[in-house]
Amino acid sequence: MTGQGLPTDDRLVELLAMRAVEGIDADALRQLGDWADCDQLDEAAGVLAIGMIADQLEPMPEMIRANLDRVALAYSGIDPDAPASPLAMPDSIRIEPAAGVSTRSVAWIGAAGWLAAAACLLLAVLAWTSGRTTPTPSPAERAVALASRPGVIRSNWLGLDDASLAEAPHRFDAQLKGEVLWDPETNEGYMVFEGLAANDPTEYQYQLWIFDAERPTGELPEYGDGILSQCPVDGGVFDAAGTGRIVIPINAKLPIGKAAIFAVTVEPPGGVVVSKRDIVALAMVQ
């Protein structure tokens, strides 16, 4: 923690306060210049957070603590599973790197034996597959394969005359047809469209939203703007190259417990975090 005071420039103090409670972007960080190292307001926010949470501390679940113990061992340079095989590599050591810091690599310190064995295994697999010419299945082929699995949900995109849409704000294309295929077990899914208008990705893109019947109850905590309302999960941004039959893989950004509604909206290039709900297609799971 730095020992300096606060800047005299109110704008910089405001940026430091903003960083302490909800973070700032790279441009704002650059504006802070040397003051970027000043974490006194971050400390203040930390103390306030402690004060607000002290009476509600939760014990860490045993399984998660056990996984953390393994991370601690790996950090200390001790192989937590020695002499384990590479296939016994723990899933739990999967730390997403923070900006500019590869925490995953830290957690793997001491795992050189695993890495060497894993490399051998990878080479063996590559050698085994090098003579093969099996092409990667297309999304359409994968969708067909998915449809044959037991338990897969299939829901048609609703039509304009569907009574359930009478009150909904929408601009559905009457010609749009197709369905959603969704495997609730694996969270794998595909959207099939016929008649979805081709888009110019520089002007707008389509974005899928998945409404999960188990959110926001379930295990979601009460924190962040999302507590104010039910909110869908981002299912990925995609383009339609033509109005013919297209198959788009679903890319849910979070695990879906119980898919209830699939909605496709029109969004600015790159998609959005908060949709204005300009819906072009909607499928409801029965």
């Binding site: 960083r19 973070g23 957070a49 923070a98 900006a99 962040g224 703007d225 309302s229 908060v274």
Partner: peptide
């Protein structure tokens, strides 16, 4: 403990920004 909480919050805020807040509507 303040040092720990400060690092924890900074990492969590970074994470919320990286992964995205749960979107909110007007209610």
């Amino acid at each position: 403990v303040t040092f720990v909480a400060t690092i924890a919050r900074r990492r969590l805020i970074d994470r919320v920004r990286r992964i995205g807040r749960r979107p909110a509507e007007s209610t």
